[in-house]
């Protein structure tokens, strides 16, 4: 059974099509990143999975049930994009309150420990820093030991150090066979912390696969060298090459297979090659290429 399945899901807000026909399935036990620019439809998709928003059309299933039933069964925990805590309550009171709502929660001391909140347990929620409050919201999301953990831009208010700790905690939680879905704009976050990246833009899936596949799909790496006045003919026929540009004597070959392209460049041509450089796949470029509205 899939952890999540979306079939023909659409959501419109008046004129705005926030989600435009999503068909997705996610196996249990995987960590999946939902990557997309502002307004792509990430939060809308997540809110439909959580039963907070109803799809205009299509069907959403979580562990084979409706989102409402999955939530009622305690299978789901989530960190929403926006949310505040009850100011008058302490960290311990908040976390304990939420964990008791679930049928089979994590023990309180363990929960505080794994989220690094032990020292902050007696602090009132209105006296936490932004990053600390995010950590509490993460604790609330995992408090019930849910099978599916959903995180909507979880590291938004965190500094570099907190981010690193956060992803470690997330991976530790996922390692116990749970399913995690997180939304992010950060390309490296998606690359480093997930085993599948779903890129969405304008409410549609534009790429789906491992981070490496996505880089390759979007044009991959490039090989650049000094060509001078030599003829550029047949460069586009080299293995792996998907595009050739020549600018003031420098040739740039976009390729899906750097090794093959470079080998062929030396062995199969008689060109004098100098100052050869290989540019690693820039996920940033890949991402922009994928999510840019197509020029019609």
């Amino acid at each position: 059974m899939n952890a999540i399945s979306l079939a023909g899901v659409r959501k419109s807000y008046g004129e705005v099509l926030a989600v435009d026909g999503l068909d997705l399935t996610m196996e249990p036990g995987r960590t999946v990143a939902l990557l997309g620019p502002n307004g792509a439809g990430k939060s809308t998709t997540i809110n439909m999975l959580l039963g907070l928003t109803r799809p205009t059309a299509g069907e959403v299933r979580v562990f084979g049930r409706t989102p409402d039933d999955a939530v009622a069964a305690g299978d789901v925990g989530a960190m929403l994009q926006e949310g505040t805590l009850i100011p008058e309550l302490t960290v311990r009171e908040l976390v304990d309150f939420v964990r008791r709502l679930y049928p089979d929660p994590l023990p309180l001391t363990e929960l505080l420990r794994v989220t690094g909140l032990t020292d902050l347990a007696s602090r009132r929620a209105d006296r936490l820093s932004g990053g600390q409050a995010q950590r509490v919201r993460f604790a609330l999301a995992i408090a019930g030991s849910p099978r599916l953990l959903v995180l909507d831009e979880p590291t938004a208010a965190m500094d570099v150090e907190s981010r690193r700790t956060f992803w470690q905690d997330m991976r530790a939680y996922a390692a116990e066979g749970r399913t995690v879905l997180f939304a992010t704009h950060y390309l490296e976050e998606a690359d480093e912390n997930s085993d599948r990246v779903i890129v969405i833009a304008r409410g549609q899936v534009v790429a789906d696969g491992t981070a490496a596949q996505i880089k390759a799909d979007a044009g991959g790496t490039s090989v650049e060298f000094f060509l001078g006045a030599q003829p550029a003919a047949r460069l586009d026929a080299l293995p792996g090459v998907t595009g050739v540009t020549i600018l003031s004597g420098r040739a740039t070959l976009r390729t899906t297979d750097t090794d093959a392209t470079v080998a062929a460049l030396y062995r199969a041509t008689t060109l004098e090659i100098s100052d050869l450089r290989i540019h690693g796949a820039d996920l940033e470029d890949a991402f922009l290429a994928l999510t840019r509205p197509s020029e019609a």
């Binding site: 959580l50 039963g51 907070l52 939530v71 009622a72 069964a73 305690g74 789901v76 925990g77 989530a78 929403l80 926006e82 949310g83 505040t84 805590l85 009850i86 939420v98 709502l101 679930y102 049928p103 919201r137 609330l140 019930g144």
Partner: peptide, 17 residues
């Protein structure tokens, strides 16, 4: 305030009826 600040949504994604 709870409705506005998102706390209600936090409760709505727990098993609390």
């Amino acid at each position: 305030q709870e409705r506005h600040s998102g706390w209600l949504r936090q409760l709505q994604i727990t098993p609390l009826p």
